[in-house]
């Protein structure tokens, strides 16, 4: 079975391929003034390139391509977390508008575009579905303790990491994979999930920790 194609893991969550299955936009390779700015997008790197094109050139074609690829996943995510179809459409529109407006803030050296969009969608659903605020750090706060200097091989979340992460997610033991997806898709903290499943809290914690240790190893780091 091909690694990235339709494969249903369990009742909780279906894999239907990935966003990057769609062929990349060729229009991106040459901009209006004829200067090549973005490298030709490979299936893996194109989401990042599209967001960068939006940030640099306010590129509407790139934004439309981004929408085609991301919006169906966003809508699926928001509905999975309890939004009705039309509410999910509204919230998807708001997320995509934030992507357009905040594209400047996307740093491909820090995280992949899919990760960055995930954080925007997560915050939007907390605000829009749960009607709560999300407390977050302010990177410019004088009270923030700065990051430790990192070695080059640790500094970024790379495209290679994502490919390894995807494989590692599929290889997780089912009891770890199921729990992990519940945390991401049920809007319930692990303590409530433990009660719902009738599992001891310690079992849930250790399964989640084992899962994350595996995924971190796949991304080439240890805690």
């Amino acid at each position: 079975m091909p690694a990235t194609r339709a494969l249903v893991l369990d009742g909780v969550f279906a894999f239907n391929g990935v966003m990057s299955d769609v062929p990349p936009l060729t229009a991106l390779e040459v901009t209006v003034d004829g200067v090549a700015r973005a490298t030709p997008a490979t299936p893996e790197s194109s989401l990042d390139d599209l967001v960068v094109a939006v940030a640099r050139n306010r590129d509407r074609a790139a934004f439309a391509a981004l929408f085609e690829r991301v919006a169906p996943r966003l809508k699926g995510y928001l509905m999975r977390l309890g939004a009705g179809a039309s509410h999910a459409d509204e919230l998807t529109q708001e997320v995509m508008l934030l992507v357009w407006r905040r594209a400047d803030a996307f740093d491909p050296g820090q995280a992949r575009a899919a990760t960055w969009i995930f954080t925007i969608a997560r915050n939007k659903r907390i605000d829009g579905i749960r009607r709560a605020r999300r407390p977050e750090i302010d990177p410019h706060d004088p009270a923030l303790v700065p990051d430790r200097p990192l070695s080059a091989d640790m500094a970024i979340e790379s495209v290679e990491d994502a490919a390894r992460l995807r494989t590692a997610l599929r290889d997780l033991p089912p009891e770890q994979a199921d729990l992990l997806r519940l945390v991401y898709f049920e809007d319930q903290p692990h303590s409530v999930i433990a009660k719902t499943l009738g599992l001891p809290l310690g079992t849930v914690k250790s399964r989640l920790r084992l899962a994350m240790d595996r995924l971190r190893r796949a991304m080439g780091e240890t805690r």
Binding site: F118, E157, M212, M219
Partner: peptide, 17 residues
């Protein structure tokens, strides 16, 4: 940040609507 990277992959693999 590592957990968010997992979120990114899960979002990409969410069944599309």
């Amino acid at each position: 940040a590592g957990h968010e990277a997992v979120g990114g992959v899960l979002l990409e693999e969410t069944a599309p609507v």
